[in-house]
Design a binder for these strands. Structure first.
Lengths: 343, 343
DNA sequence: TTGTACGCGTTATCAG
DNA sequence: CTGATAACGCGTACAA
């Protein structure tokens, strides 16, 4: 019945098939504004559409409407469980709102965020979610601010997950506070000589966690921890822990500023013949899903990653007022076997 | 200098700013066809574009061209390391080709693939990559075939990763062979009483691996393994292993048809007080990234997941001939501590 | 080499 | 309630 149509079937085809005008066919689909197309015609249009397997041309709709049903999600590394969990939350919420998600993975190069933002602006994305940590780089931040403004000027919304550094809706992750709470608990357990496997200094998430942890220690009357920098990855954690071990410092508890680093640190200990927690206590941050299959269980600060992703998307959907909103997410300290009470 | 422009800046604005016609401005950007815009004007256009922070309206381009620079990637679950690794490979390759990727995560409901496919067709995506296993369901397959054809008729390409069940470019994962090789090696190590933690029966990937493993066993003169079904997830593996243990069957080696199941199985063993590999040997399939932090090291069949993703995208980019191409990916058996030689 | 003008598929405005 | 018709921004034959 479809005959030998050449191109894809258009709304016009549907209208003809249904014997109505183009305008009516259009209204039959998105007659949200004061539904005023007779049930009769609506039916006819739908039947025709189904018969022709019609699928609206989204670019054409975008042109006419000025915006799309696509939201961008920019992460630092989609293969990192932290981000893939957030992505899962975003996807789930997006599905409920019939939104499509286009993904950007920057491979931890912050400048790539700018490029993705520009590309997404070109796509007339309804919104973009910046899921990764902000960085401490004045020039970069200025450039980002500019891109964000351009994006908003083109009609889109921006939502950031992590720190509030831009005048946009933000899901603030209370990294500092979570790390401080962790330090307090650890101190309460009897640990006294701490080391921190810190991430790159310019990564605000890493820095906040280090600062929070140090502040918690200080409040407990414990001096500043030994700090070893490392990449914010599993291998970074491995390298940092190795470096720490090589330094032969006297340490009884190590805090890796995120779980993937902690997992790398555990591997480093294993390779050096150290037994956790007998020889050393270790804690991480995030409570990524893969953690439950680590032995010993890793003490950490839980962030509800999927929820965070879903929440970010909710902010996108409920965006209307101009005021930048913020949602604070508190981390919950989860004590596990990797940090038993001392003595 | 940008004055108080209202809407986004268009190509027309750039043309005016540069003092050239709209057509020239357009050609300055995509003058691929016999580059014939003078260097002089090209320069002026670029400067104007930069100054105005111009970003081409992708939907408008899509309308004019009839296709976009977006490719869809449909996975079963983006939070699963198997898929997030493939996604990472796709993203990396996509970046190189200046393609945008819109992500679909079906939450393991195969029907969702149809919906995403339709949505992506509406978006006029240049292509879509179906990354997950096909399922054995005649009706579903027929519906999928129809959607795929509609997608291709609208000008897009389809690439499948896993089994060749559709007449489209396919990255074939040699699951059967990999599992067979694994069985052969395991038999060579001295194991004799096998059990398989199989995935859902309709999942072809799971089924192929079970069949391949059984065939390898049989070739080694070993009878059919004990089979326990489970979801294709970490919890599915945990449940299946628990069930197996409860059955108190005499088994010396267990094959979980994928790594996430194997990891779940390890947890089940731990919870039951079983020590691997002393009390039981265990092997998985995929060699997901998180495996290297499991103890004992898990024997598995390595699939180069990132490469697979990148390869799928290469198929998209090099698509022109009508012939469905295929790329076979062999799994490599990786022996680790979880399956030591017997005695 | 450059400019003019048309068409892409929809939405939305304005008459009937 | 329904039907013409003017945008929307860009690519590209066609003309100059």
């Amino acid at each position: 019945m479809t005959e030998h149509e050449s191109g894809p079937v258009t709304l016009m085809d549907v209208a003809n098939e249904a014997g109505v005008s183009l305008a009516t066919a259009s209204r039959a689909f998105n007659g949200s504004m004061t539904r005023k197309v007779s049930e009769d015609l609506r039916e006819r249009v739908f039947i025709a559409a189904k018969k022709l397997n019609y699928s609206a041309n989204a670019p054409a709709q975008a042109m006419a409407r000025g915006h799309t049903n696509v939201v961008g999600l920019i992460v630092h590394d989609i293969a990192d469980p932290y981000f893939s969990s957030i992505a899962a939350g975003v996807m789930k919420a997006a599905e409920e709102h019939r939104l499509l998600v286009t993904l950007g993975s920057t491979m931890r190069r912050p400048e790539r965020e700018l490029e993705y933002l520009a590309a997404l602006r070109g796509q007339r994305s309804r919104a973009v979610i910046l899921a990764g940590s902000r960085v401490d780089d004045t020039r970069l931040l200025a450039a980002l601010r500019e891109e964000v403004e351009a994006f908003e000027r083109s009609g889109g919304r921006v939502v950031v997950i992590s720190q509030q550094k831009l005048a946009v809706d933000t899901v603030i992750l209370e990294n500092r506070r979570g790390a401080r709470d962790l330090a307090t608990e650890l101190a309460g357990l009897g640990y006294r000589r701490f080391a921190v496997l810190a991430g790159p200094e310019r990564l605000l998430t890493a820095r906040d966690r280090l600062q929070g942890f140090s502040s918690g220690l200080s409040k407990a009357g414990i001096g500043a921890p030994l700090v070893v920098q490392g990449e914010f990855t599993r291998d970074g954690g491995y390298a940092a822990m190795t470096q720490l071990l090589d330094a032969k410092a006297t340490v009884d508890c190590v805090f890796a500023v995120n779980d993937v680093m902690a997992v790398g640190a555990m591997a480093a200990c294993r390779d050096r013949g150290l037994r956790l927690p007998r020889d050393l206590a270790l804690a991480g941050f995030d409570d990524i899903a893969t953690l439950r299959d680590q032995t010993p269980g890793l003490t950490t600060v839980r962030l509800p990653l999927e929820q965070v992703g879903a929440l970010a998307l909710e902010l996108v959907v409920t965006a209307d007022g101009p005021t930048p909103r913020q949602r604070r997410i508190r981390g919950e300290v989860i004590m596990r076997a990797s940090t038993p009470a001392k003595r």
